[in-house]
């Protein structure tokens, strides 16, 4: 058996195997299409809010995925600080990017719902403002990653920034309880139970499931991209 080299550079990253169709992505896309069809054509509108209420079936799952993605990114970063496994850093990077995309979705669909219901696209209420701050923080995280070439330094700095940024997530969620906000109280994660009729609950949870699958598919694809990019960088470095 060949002994492992000691004190040498880390093993070069192997590129991902290209196996054609990504079935996780295909299933996620199909389930998401089904969730959209159910929300659009097979779920009744709300009597008081009208069709604008149906925006909730994309808005709430979007913020759920954003919290999940940014939270897991921070967790992976924290583990990287101890284990130094490059896969953890690639996961943190990928999950953060997906989280930023979904937070962008929240910041787009929220104002579209707010205009007909509140009469204003945006109000500087605690929930909205904290969500915007969270988006800026993780946008900064991605910019930071792009600005540092050294892989280990980049992983360390971004792990710390990701952890600090993720501390905001509980405050965003609890802001409607802590502050007097215009944003509605949660209809699902509500201490008094789910505040929704059964037909809407089915649509809501189906949509939540679909968006979670989308998250898995996006992170897998984004991680494959990060792995291939690192493999290319390693090969170029080895040549020099």
């Amino acid at each position: 058996m060949t002994p492992a080299p000691t004190g040498s550079a880390p093993a070069p990253t192997a590129p991902t195997a290209r196996t054609g169709i990504d079935w996780v992505a295909v299933v996620a896309a199909l389930v998401t299409v089904a969730a959209f069809v159910r929300a659009i054509w097979f779920t009744p509108p709300d009597l008081l809010q009208g069709y604008a209420q149906k925006i909730m079936y994309v808005h709430v799952p979007t913020i759920w995925v954003a919290f999940l993605a940014l939270g897991l990114s921070a967790l992976a970063g924290a583990f990287w600080l101890f284990l130094k496994d490059p896969r953890l850093d690639r996961f943190a990077e990928s999950s953060a990017e997906v989280g930023v995309v979904f937070t962008t979705g929240v910041l787009i669909t929220g104002p579209i719902w707010a205009k007909p219901i509140w009469g204003a696209w945006w109000v500087w209420d605690a929930r909205l403002t904290l969500t915007l701050v969270l988006w800026f923080l993780f946008l900064g995280y991605l910019v930071l990653r792009g600005a540092i070439d050294d892989r280990e330094l980049r992983a360390r700095y971004s792990a710390v920034v990701g952890l600090l940024g993720a501390l905001l997530i509980p405050f965003v969620h609890l802001s409607v309880y802590i502050f007097r906000t215009q944003h509605p109280m949660p209809v699902v994660a509500n201490p008094e139970g789910i505040q929704m009729p059964a037909v809407m609950q089915v649509t809501f949870f189906f949509s939540l499931f679909a968006f979670t699958l989308m998250y898995v598919a996006f992170v897998r694809a984004r991680m494959a991209l990060a792995t291939d990019r690192d493999a290319l960088e390693d090969a170029s470095t080895a040549e020099r």
Binding site: A39, Y51, K54, I55, H59, T62, I108, T109, I112
Partner: peptide
């Protein structure tokens, strides 16, 4: 608004 939100998400 409902159409706009779904179109933006897609």
């Amino acid at each position: 608004y409902f159409h706009a939100a779904y179109a933006a998400t897609i």
